[in-house]
Amino acid sequence: MPVLVIAQHNNSTINPATLNTVTAARKIDADVHVLVAGSDNQAAADAAAKIHGVKKVIKVDAPELEKRLAENHAPVIAANADGYSHILAPATTFGKNVMPRVAALLDTQQISDIIDVIDGDTFKRPIYGGQAIAEVKSSDSQKVITVRPTAFDAVDADGGSAEASDGAASGDAGLSSFVGLEASESDRPDLSSAKIVVSGGRGFGSKENFAMIEALADKLGAAIGASRAAVDSGYVPNDYQVGQTGKVVAPELYIAVGISGAIQHLAGMKDSKVIVAINKDEEAPIFSIADYGLVADLFDAVPELTDKL
């Protein structure tokens, strides 16, 4: 049976996490279809049709789908899920918000945040903040799954030529409306997919001091991440938080500065290829997973590092 991937998009472009989700889907079955639900979303549907390995794109275009309101999206996904054995979406805040609602509509027990596909019924997922890995086997006939993007390579965004079709809309549920988005946009690479991430923690002591990390990130062309403590203290916006309950990243290089290395933080970055820790406390748990540890005062080390790069 074909499998259905729910595209994350902004009506014109496809969010890269969709490409990792397609890889996971292809491990289940080669017949991968993509649902692009939105409003005025022809450009996004066209982009989806070019994704390598996608056989068919279903576009649903309706005004109530412009924003990603779960109340309006979930019924559309459920209504278009007929004939699919698996329905997958990335485990981003979009997927996390909408997919459990779909699962409940279909009376199926969602499998969250998978990191491996064993077979069509069996998947691996981290539990307890990545302190254990569970392999679970689903007995539901239709499976709703969210996919941890960093655990699967991205397929090529180009090269495919999927068949296009239109799917049915479900109307406005009339339960919710979009008020606004306070976007925390920056010119830096996207945190979730950046090759290099420089993360700061409570060690910076203030928002003003945290700016120091920006110079370092600029030098490296890196994205900026943060610990919960740095976000709670207002040094950076909420979506910079890396960890069990924030973003999961796995860059080539992760530099943790002034971060102690709590389990909840490690959960979001320990699959990075190379980890550097800069901390003045040589006992800090972050050193136990760092490839290169520098015991130093960050107020000396960060400017020096920025200078010398």
Binding site: I133, V136, K137, S138, F287, A296, K308
Partner: peptide, 26 residues
């Protein structure tokens, strides 16, 4: 609806080395 096949330890990541200076780190 889900049966647990197994629960295992995540791959362990052992700490690497300490570097003495910013120069050595670079």
């Amino acid at each position: 609806r889900l049966t647990v096949v197994s629960v295992s330890e995540p791959p362990v990541r052992s700490g690497g080395v300490k570097v003495a200076s910013v120069d050595e780190l670079i």
